[in-house]
């Protein structure tokens, strides 16, 4: 329940900001919302099931290119094009997941990184389909009930609504048997199998869910920017998504949103540093991994619940501990 309240508060904050900030900040907020959708997706794979993916951006790209190609080459409506773009990305993740997820840890990270690099190479070189490094321009925007979602403010409202829905769905999955199974798999694969959990099936499901969220983010991106090119989906973006999740707090939907927003705005706030930003960013990530391994969400949890209940003593355990 508390996580639903936190999610609603974040969405309302975004909505309130949409009346108070400049066009430029609105654009950044839109980028933050789109990144947040992708990072909530990554949270299924990495935060819950413990699958390190450095190829998340490739799935964002698959969704974006799917929508771009179907709308510009086949003249589909973007709404209609989004369906096969997202479903196709999910299928691709399932087909890739079965062989890829036999790998663990560093090996999986490297393989997914390779997947992202392959995606960039294909997107740059399959010129008839993708336009090569020139990308695809003039992707049509979204129209809802005769109303064009082409301004930064109106698109932000739409983006926030999508983020709210997908955030709620993620929270529902978190609290379901699938969510518990994903966390059990991350905590201890052998013990998970020993409680009857299909470890491979649950891992692939988490991977597919993460790809579906990524593809939706990609569709939002294509419909908002009206232009896609291979550079928008290279592996550096995958590393950024992972950083957003770690900064915000893996395993938490609110953390994914906060991390996405923070790392979208931080480069703008620190523009004065110039090239020095990368050094600052590296040191910040290091500091977070060392001092805040559970991210901002973990820090807030610690404030709320300062100490664990006492060990197995009758006094602390008479059912008084509620959520």
């Amino acid at each position: 329940m508390r996580s639903v309240l936190v999610l609603s508060a974040l969405i309302l904050a975004g909505f309130a900001l949409s009346f108070a900030v400049s066009e430029y900040t609105l654009r950044l907020l839109n980028m933050a919302v789109i990144a947040a959708v992708a990072v909530i997706g990554l949270n299924f794979a990495f935060g819950y099931a413990g699958l390190i993916s450095l190829g998340h951006s490739a799935f964002v790209g698959l969704g974006a290119y799917g929508l771009a190609i179907l709308t510009t080459k086949a003249d589909w409506s973007p709404w209609l094009a989004a369906i096969p773009a997202v479903a196709g990305t999910g299928l691709a993740a399932a087909a890739l997941g079965y062989p890829l997820l036999r790998l663990k840890g560093h090996y999986l990270a490297l393989a997914t990184l390779g997947l992202n690099v392959s995606f960039s190479i294909v997107a740059s070189n399959w010129i008839e389909l993708t336009g090569g490094t020139n990308g695809i321009a003039q992707i049509p925007g979204l129209t809802l009930a005769g109303y064009k979602l082409d301004g930064e403010q109106t698109f932000l409202w739409f983006g926030l609504a999508v983020l709210a829905l997908l955030g709620l769905a993620a929270l529902a999955i978190h609290a379901s048997r699938l969510g518990r199974a994903m966390m059990a798999v991350r905590d201890d694969e052998t013990a998970a199998a020993m409680t009857g959990i299909d470890v491979t099936g649950v891992s692939v499901t988490a991977f597919v869910l993460s790809a579906i969220y990524a593809a939706i983010a990609g569709c939002l991106f294509a419909a908002h920017v009206h232009f896609v090119s291979p550079d928008d989906f290279n592996y550096a973006h995958s590393i950024t998504f992972l950083s957003m999740l770690i900064v915000g707090g893996e395993g938490s939907v609110a953390g994914a949103i906060v991390g996405a927003a923070l790392l979208t705005f931080l480069p703008e706030w620190l523009r004065v540093l110039g090239e020095g930003y990368l050094a600052f960013f590296g040191l910040m990530m290091l500091a977070i991994l060392v001092f805040l391994p559970t991210g901002i969400a973990g820090l807030l949890r610690r404030w709320r619940r300062p100490a664990l209940p006492p060990q197995d003593t009758a006094a602390g355990l008479d059912g008084a501990v509620s959520r």
């Binding site: 518990r180 199974a181 966390m183 059990a184 905590d187 020993m194 409680t195 395993g251």
Partner: peptide, 24 residues
């Protein structure tokens, strides 16, 4: 089967740990 040193899922509460078993 149980394991020699007891293997639980630390990110889940006690009842949630049991629920993973019951979900079969």
């Amino acid at each position: 089967r149980t394991f020699q040193h007891g293997r639980l899922f630390p990110r889940l509460s006690v009842v949630e740990n049991i629920m993973t078993g019951a979900a079969n």
